[in-house]
């Protein structure tokens, strides 16, 4: 870990401004991902701005009939919230499928959106990784890639976004609220928040330097049945091989998000019209253009099979 300076934020605007003008600054909230990465010197911030003093830990009803989740609301509190469990169960279930109780107690809503890939080559600083060190190459391509991306990948990077919470938020059409370094607030649809790796895999999302997440808002509840089916080799405390977040209505229509396959929560809205016809009608559209490796080719049929399992449960 490199030495760093530290300050406690006083307001979102001040925090964003400070981050914007300080080279190498990062925000810290729960720290569950950032501190690990700092110990390994994968992240080497020179300055940390602690957003805990800002509050931002409320879950409020919005005028539109949805919810506004403060950036610092912990995963545990969010998953346990009565309104979330009742109206956005897919989100609650996704969160509970991730990490461990101890980590969920520390991890925050904003931090979870920003967690970095778990690609093992990203984690080993002896290995080439364009995400960790732009231009160094990608050791994962041609290497051990069973866990890695199958769709939206590039020649520079096949890493996945590892989280569960954001897959559900993608299905719920959440919006990420931020304040930029210049004090301007903006609202970023979750669909646009995470990037594909392209030729700049070191950039995970569209946040600008200094930009601070202040909240995530959820639109009005969708109704329907909510599912989060996370498939993994180990039953708990493991990243998804594939996960399916779904909200399915009584008439068989609905929405589907896929985790564990791409550099971002994967959702193809155009495919969802075919949901009443079953997984075989939908999954090939969702996964069209997949470029799996020999190691992770199984993820493509696994998406269809897991979606079929979810739809079967929705019918029952």
């Amino acid at each position: 870990m490199r030495p760093f300076t530290y300050e406690r934020a006083t307001s979102p605007e001040a925090a964003a401004a400070a981050a914007g003008r300080t080279q190498g600054a990062k925000f810290i909230a729960g720290g569950t991902n950032l501190l690990d990465l700092m110990k390994l010197e994968i992240e080497t911030p020179t300055h940390l701005i602690d957003i805990r003093p800002l509050g931002l830990d409320k879950i409020e009803d919005t005028d539109e009939g949805g919810l506004r989740i403060g950036a610092f609301v912990t995963n545990t509190d969010l998953a346990a919230d009565r309104r979330v469990r009742r109206d956005y169960a897919v989100l609650s279930r996704a969160i509970m499928a991730g990490a461990s109780g101890q980590l969920r107690n520390k991890a925050t809503t904003a931090g979870n959106l920003l967690q970095r890939t778990r690609c093992p080559y990203f984690y080993d600083t002896n290995q080439a990784c364009n995400k960790r060190k732009p231009g160094s190459g990608c050791a994962a391509i041609g290497g051990y890639s069973r866990q890695l991306g199958v769709i939206g990948v590039s020649d520079a990077c096949i890493a996945t976004y590892p989280g569960d919470m954001a897959i559900a938020m993608r299905v719920l059409d959440a919006t990420v609220e931020t304040v930029k370094a210049d004090g301007e607030a903006r609202a970023i649809p979750i669909a646009d928040f995470h990037r594909l790796p392209g030729d700049a895999p070191h950039i995970d999302n569209v946040l600008e330097p200094g930009e601070l997440i202040t909240a995530v808002t959820l639109p009005r509840p969708l109704g329907g049945k909510h599912f989060y089916h996370k498939v993994r080799d180990r039953r708990s405390y493991a990243y998804a091989l594939v996960s399916i977040a779904a909200v399915v209505q009584r008439d068989g229509s609905g929405r589907v998000g896929v985790g564990g396959v791409a550099h971002k929560p994967w959702r193809v809205e155009a495919a969802e019209a075919a949901l009443p016809e079953g997984a075989a009608a939908v999954a090939p559209q969702i996964m069209a253009g997949a470029r799996p490796t020999e190691d992770n080719r199984f993820k493509v049929p696994l998406v269809e099979r897991t979606l079929a399992a979810v739809l079967a449960e929705a019918r029952s």
Binding site: R118, P120, Y123, Q127, Y144, R234, Y237, A238, Y239
Partner: peptide, 21 residues
């Protein structure tokens, strides 16, 4: 998991070398 090009066990932590919970 062996990386047969570079000669090492790739999943060298408990997040990626999974043991039962």
């Amino acid at each position: 998991a062996v990386d047969k090009r570079f000669g090492f066990f790739v999943n060298h932590d408990l997040a990626t070398y999974e043991v039962p919970v």
